[in-house]
Design a protein around this nucleic acid. Structure first.
Length: 891
RNA sequence: GCCGGAGUGGCGGAAUUGGUAGACGCAAGGGACUUAAAAUCCCUCGGGACUUAGUCCCGUAUCGGUUCGAGUCCGAUCUUCGGCACCA
């Protein structure tokens, strides 16, 4: 031990002696210094000047689980680069951060460790905020939002009440997962293999009255709006459209023979109406209950509802009449028919629907072919037996007056016929369901309604908001919602009749919190005020002589919204984004703001992955549990698994804090931006991180060794025509790099190629040997530019180097450099000469030659001449500034 | 099954509107410096052939097509990753 200490201090002394201790790149010191500087000067506070062009850059806020992971780091670094870049481009940038702070893990922690969810959550936030700041993220912390604070969730409640007023929030009965042993509701993720996560009791479905938001009222608009989402990845838009699931079709009434009941079915294939051979009802369809006398058999079909493996049916003993051809067909109850979609009843055409085909086979029901393929080769074998349903389009057969029509024509004709004759109507169905927001949990926004025996469901008046979560509760994980045991919370006077009443004890889905947090940021901390944004009746049509100081309705909110760039994980491609789009529209209709779409551009970053290690005996291994491909515990060969998303269970995670301690935040930022473009998965590589660190180190040495020389040069204009070729070439490279880095950022946020270009410039700078004043001046300008261009990626080291170069103001306040197109132009180009499409020679020629001269030059090249001697020239193609292709007649 | 991506060196990844395939980095090999190592710096680095220091051939998942020219466009196939999945 002692000798080690001696050795270390000797080493440090020795190194300090040789290279000078002050010259070494010390990320820890620098990063802390600049983080303090930024924070003290409030450098990243959004400006209040709303005449300036704005840029709202938003990253998905984290759930405060306790620790930041690499996925967060990647997400936030991408957003930070964009924000810093846009600031340098002169935009008024809003770049906020907050906490998605309600949710189950806090309550689980309370159950397990007896910590109050609030304490657990706020401690996590405090810790994670320090972690975020260590990454050097340029947030405006003055606008921080924490969804579990009453100041925030008050507005959840306020919005709920507005939705309620408009009929967009309503109550209906719905099923939840219920553990009979714990007597509590379970979330889907708490149900493991159909059993309770805590006690392993099998979970049952229990019917409860719950609150819903009527997102279906906006289904069509949300779908139409998808076409405006040009700044979103195609696949996310596709997923949204898919989820909404619009389909056009007709509803047709089938009368039941002898009972007077009518069954309304929905179909998208009216062209197959003549092929209907039976009708199926969902097990919980009203008419099914009436038609089936054997309730136990009906219950057994109900029990298999939703079972994707088996088709189970039951003949009701009744027949329906096809209104088009008056055929009498049997009515079945079938487990695969969904009550929630369409009318809860279907017409079955086994010849042209695979599901009906399977059902018909099982229950020996007739199959009637009414569509034949246009291609005769595909026609049914003469036996008339199908092996599977024919679901494509074709020519109608056996369909009365419609026989011989093409199916897409027949669809329209038959639909028209149905409507004209009052047999049914055209209709559009959507897969999307209303959004159930009730959660039987404590750690969420209390739903602001009161139940009164006399007045029924009474909304909490606005003036009584927020309805605050009570503190006097215990967390056992048993016996339903903890809110039920707080007398003080539960008992309340009815706002209407002042009689005794009871509060709603359910809380809201946390997706409600995240559906409008981006709007909350626009107000600044604790200043959220959605109602002040409502248009006010004009007091006076003319502004008063004193100058009206009345707030313009919607001013600040409408300035910042919509978000210009949203960045987050693909896992939120459907729900969060769809709910947010719904909330925006609802709020627009309340008059709170003008826009409909919340996020103009969306970037879904790829996952952070890493190689996995697995021992045949000990399972997944941490990197330091293996040495030389052998397991440390048993010495067996370790299998290098494929690279997978970092996860604790696979032990391939990396702790951002450890990395920062070792390399500094700038290195981590640089590597995660360099290793892959943002939308693709990022494979973590320890060696790659070292490479990024080496690059920063090289830059550090480059600046520090030239400080003295560089400082002497001023900003005097140099005359290009008199410059050395070396200087010109470095100057040119500098301008080319500005252009390249700028366009890579602007175009697709391809930071990886931007950084590659910066590395090229750095390489050129280090091999440049300045001889005189001019050389030093060019060197200084190239170095300064490189640092400016680097600053969004690795801001701390850039600040420090910028300061070392003698600059007095922070690099974060500098303008993004501009390039000069003339300066960036190459004087000579490499001309590639092809013969018959194969590269045969390369020549250096001056820039800007005419096509004819280029052609001539190419043909005069001795090598090309010898190739051309083999045949006569048929054609010559000249691509300006690039290549010549000489095509010969083949012999 | 349906919808949407992706297949390029040993690896991560580059390649404007079709116009030099492999930028930049990692790994590997060689060299310089050092008593030595680390660090740093320099060189080589898709495969093959030959009459070996220059030249030729092959090469972007596979097969075919369009074109003077295809990683890029078109058609088919294979592999792979996401999402949805009895939505009538």
């Amino acid at each position: 031990m002692l000798s080690a200490i001696c050795y270390n201090s000797f080493t440090i002394f020795f190194m300090a002696e040789v290279i000078g201790l002050e010259e070494r790149y010390d990320p820890q010191g620098i990063e802390l210094k600049w983080q303090q500087y930024w924070s003290e000067k409030k450098m990243f506070r959004s400006g209040s000047d709303i005449s300036k062009e704005k840029f709202y850059c938003l990253e998905m806020f984290p759930y405060p689980s306790g620790k930041i992971h690499m996925g967060h780091v990647r997400n936030y670094v991408i957003g930070d680069v964009i924000s810093r870049y846009k600031r340098m481009r002169g935009y008024n940038v809003l770049h906020p951060m907050g906490w998605d702070a309600f949710g189950m893990p806090a309550e689980n922690a309370a159950i397990k460790h007896g910590l109050h969810p609030a304490k657990w959550t706020y401690e996590n936030i405090e810790f994670m905020k320090v972690q975020l700041n260590r990454i050097g993220l340029s947030y405006d912390w003055d606008r921080e939002v924490t969804t579990c604070s009453p100041e925030y969730y008050k507005w959840n409640q306020w919005l709920f009440l507005r939705l309620l007023e408009k009929g967009l929030a309503y109550r209906k009965s719905s099923f939840v997962n219920w553990c009979t042993s714990c007597e509590t509701v379970l979330a889907n993720e708490q149900v493991i293999d159909g059993a309770c996560w805590r006690c392993d009791t099998s979970v049952v479905q229990k019917e409860l009255e719950q609150w819903f938001f009527r997102i279906t009222a906006y289904a069509e608009e949300l779908l139409q709006g998808c076409d405006e989402l040009t700044g979103w990845p195609d696949r996310v838009v596709a997923m949204q459209k898919n989820w909404i699931g619009r389909s056009e079709g007709v509803e047709v009434d089938f009368a039941i023979d002898g009972t007077g009941d009518k069954i309304r079915i929905f179909t998208t294939r009216p062209d197959t109406l003549f092929g209907v051979t039976f009708i199926c009802l969902a097990p919980n369809h009203q008419v099914a209950g009436r038609l089936v006398s054997d309730k136990s058999r009906l219950d057994s079909v109900k029990a298999l509802y939703g079972d994707a493996e088996h088709k189970e049916g039951l003949f009701t003993g009744h027949y329906a009449v096809n209104p088009l051809n008056s055929e009498r067909i049997p009515v079945y109850v079938a487990n695969f028919v969904l009550m929630e979609y369409g009318t809860g009843a279907i017409m079955s055409v086994p010849a042209h629907d695979q599901r009906d085909f399977e059902f018909a086979n099982k229950y020996n029901l007739p199959v009637k072919i009414v569509i034949t393929p246009e291609n005769p080769e595909l026609r049914t074998p003469s036996s008339g037996l199908l092996t599977e349903a024919y679901e494509d389009e074709g020519i109608l057969a056996d369909s009365g007056p419609f026989s011989g029509m093409k199916s897409n024509e027949a669809k329209k004709e038959i639909a028209r016929f149905v409507e004209k004759n009052g047999l049914g109507k055209l209709n559009i169905n959507y897969k999307i369901r209303d959004w159930g927001i009730s959660r039987q949990r404590y750690w969420g926004t209390p739903i602001p309604v009161i139940y009164c025996n006399r007045c029924g469901v009474v909304p909490v008046p606005d003036k009584d908001l927020p309805v605050i979560l009570p503190e006097d509760v215990h967390f056992t994980g048993r016996g339903g919602s903890p809110l039920l045991e707080s007398e003080r919370f539960l008992k309340v006077d009815c706002p209407k009749c002042k009689g005794p009443a009871r509060r709603e004890t359910d809380t809201m889905d946390t997706f409600v919190d995240s559906s409008w947090y981006f709007i909350a940021y626009c107000f600044g901390k604790n200043k959220i005020s959605l109602n002040s944004e409502l248009p006010k009746p004009a007091l006076n049509s003319q502004p008063s002589a004193l100058g009206s100081k009345l707030p313009t309705p919607n001013s600040e909110l409408n300035y910042w919204m919509p978000v210009d760039q949203y960045i987050g994980g693909i896992e939120h491609a459907v729900l969060h984004l769809l709910y947010s789009r719904f909330f925006m529209r609802a709020m627009r209709d309340f008059g709170i703001l003008g826009a409909s779409e919340p996020f103009r551009n969306l970037l879904t970053q790829g996952m952070v992955c890493k190689e996995t290690l697995k021992c045949p005996e000990h399972g997944w291994l941490l990197p330091d549990e293996a040495a030389n491909d052998k397991c440390m515990h048993c010495g067996q060969e370790v299998a290098r698994g494929r690279t997978e998303k970092m996860s604790k269970s696979k032990k391939n995670v990396i702790d951002p804090d450890e990395l920062i301690n070792k390399f500094g935040a700038d290195t981590i930022r640089l590597f995660s931006l360099f290793a892959a473009p943002p939308e693709k998965d990022l494979e973590w590589s320890d060696k790659g991180v070292e490479g990024a660190h080496r690059f920063l180190n090289r830059l550090w040495v480059l600046v520090s060794k030239n400080i003295d020389k560089g400082q002497e040069t001023g900003d005097k204009e140099l005359e290009r025509s008199k410059m050395h070729s070396g200087s010109i070439s470095l100057l040119r490279k500098t301008h080319q790099t500005i252009k390249k880095v700028t366009s890579d950022i602007e175009k697709e946020y391809h930071f990886n190629t931007a950084i590659a270009a910066l590395m090229e410039l750095a390489n050129e700078i280090s091999s440049f040997n300045p001889q005189d004043y001019e050389g030093w001046s060019v060197l200084r300008s190239a170095t300064g530019t490189a640092i400016l261009l680097l600053s969004p990626f690795s801001p701390h080291i850039s600040e420090e180097l910028w300061e070392m170069m003698g600059n007095k103001t922070s690099i974060s306040e500098q303008k993004w450099p501009a390039w000069d197109e003339e300066m960036a132009k190459e004087e000579e180009i490499e001309l590639v000469i092809q013969v018959n499409g194969k590269v045969r020679a390369k020549l250096m020629v001056p820039h800007g030659l005419s096509d004819d001269v280029i052609k001539e030059t190419a043909l005069e090249d001795p090598k090309i001449k010898s190739f051309c001697a083999e045949g006569s020239i048929r054609n010559v193609f000249v691509v300006r500034g690039r290549l010549v292709n000489i095509v010969l007649y083949s012999r």
